[in-house]
Nucleic acid binder design. Structure first.
Lengths: 121, 121
DNA sequence: CTGCATCCTGTTGGATACTG
DNA sequence: CAGTATCCAACAGGATGCAG
């Protein structure tokens, strides 16, 4: 399994402009990060560079609460915790992919309309 | 064209629990309300009973800015304004339908997981 | 390493009254 | 009728320090 890279959600990636949101601000991105297999807390912090530990923990807890991911702690020192998608969590990919496809097709039109609107003021 | 009913988004409708959101809080619901044709400001307030005029106006302005709807004013007295979906706005239905289908299939599982999690605490 | 406690900020959304 | 103006509450999200 490839390590997650820091530029997976680069700022110039327009995903922040899409009208679709999954769960809270970071929920959809966490789900994508878990696509290939379980990840540790600190592993997730690499692609999600700007998320604070508090907010990441809250995001993971909300996803666990809704049955989308599992949280497995290993009784080691230093401690290790791994998060993994459940079968239910994997069902999110289908609608998420449709949203991503929409964005690839139509986000440029949205941004063009927005710029035209802003210029008109 | 049928009038919009007040129970279109009834509170017991679980749409509030879906993890998918389109635009701001009311954006997706406005798009659904415009599916069958143009609607007036006050017509939209019927199904969206609890939205304040300020927030509805902001929602409509954001949708217009992004090219999803058009705003047409008629120079009458009393004034009349009609909102209608654009072709771009209609492209939202495809991903939105996939999200709705997800919710119909899997929202019960999500809610069951949530209840189990909350009981475990 | 994981993630909780605390505090703080900005944004979103709502209540109410009022205007062209 | 179709909003705007004003004020306010709630919450999401962020910074920082610390604990197991």
């Amino acid at each position: 399994m490839e390590p997650l890279t820091a530029d997976l959600f680069a700022p110039q990636c327009l995903s922040a402009e899409t009208p679709f949101r999954i769960g809270d601000k970071w929920g959809g991105m966490v789900v994508v990060c878990l696509k290939d297999g379980p990840r540790r807390f600190s592993e997730l912090r690499v692609p999600l560079r700007t998320v604070s530990p508090k907010v990441l923990a809250a995001t993971l807890k909300a996803l666990e609460r809704d049955g989308m991911i599992t949280r497995k702690t290993y009784d080691e020192n230093p401690p290790r915790v791994e998060y993994a998608l459940t079968d239910l969590g994997r069902t999110l990919f289908e609608p998420m992919d449709r949203c991503r496809e929409w964005a690839e097709k139509y986000l440029p039109s949205l941004l063009k309309a927005r710029q035209a609107y802003d210029r008109a003021d």
